[in-house]
């Protein structure tokens, strides 16, 4: 059965379980390559951040692997569909294994909820399969009765290593 991309919140303020379910669903949409629905989970002013440095604090004057707004994320999603996207012929597939997300902070008055999720991420294409270990930090807000991602930060355990292509989303 196809999972619904998102479940409506029962009340104005999300429960811890609703935050956890949201983070788990986000990973599942990536694994199922439902990228348009995945992108809808992001607020219009959202950023997806994958630091290059251990404990990086600045995305602006320190380089990152990714620091992308919704426009750049939507370009990635469109590119994956392209007839001449040769690096995706054949396509990559990916697989998330999440530890149960932990709710690190709930600030109802600021409408900001932060979760922390250790994970293993596997990306594969042709005969190659690569395992990455990372922590995902989600900064979530309620917009129009739905949870939205304001910031997703993915800290790779080996963020400063030399990688080959990483083509999908952690």
């Amino acid at each position: 059965m196809t999972m619904l991309a998102e479940a409506p919140l029962k009340n104005a303020v999300p429960t811890d379980q609703e935050l956890i379910d949201f983070v788990v669903r986000e990973a599942r949409l990536i694994d199922q390559q439902r990228f348009d629905e995945w992108l809808d989970l992001y607020a219009d002013d959202a950023f997806y951040w994958m630091p290059l440095e251990w404990n990086q604090t600045d995305p602006r004057l320190t380089c990152s692997l990714m620091y992308e707004d919704k426009l750049l994320l939507s370009i990635r999603v469109e590119r994956l569909k392209g007839a001449r996207t040769f690096s995706q012929k054949p396509k990559s597939r990916c697989h998330h294994v999440l530890q149960t997300p932990q709710v690190d902070s709930r600030d109802t008055s600021a409408n900001r909820y932060v979760t922390w999720t250790p994970m293993h991420y596997i990306e594969t294409r042709l005969d190659e399969q690569t395992l990455y270990a990372a922590w995902a930090t989600h900064h979530l807000s309620v917009e129009g009765g739905k949870l939205r991602i304001k910031l997703k930060r993915v800290d790779l355990i080996n963020c400063d290593a030399a990688f080959g292509n990483i083509q999908l989303f952690m």
């Binding site: 994958m50 290059l52 602006r60 004057l61 320190t62 380089c63 990152s64 692997l65 990714m66 620091y67 750049l72 370009i75 990635r76 590119r79 030399a162 990688f163 080959g164 292509n165 990483i166």
Partner: peptide, 13 residues
Amino acid sequence: LMYNRLINAPTSI
């Protein structure tokens, strides 16, 4: 830095 990560990163399209 934006140029570098958009064009030269292992995560760059």
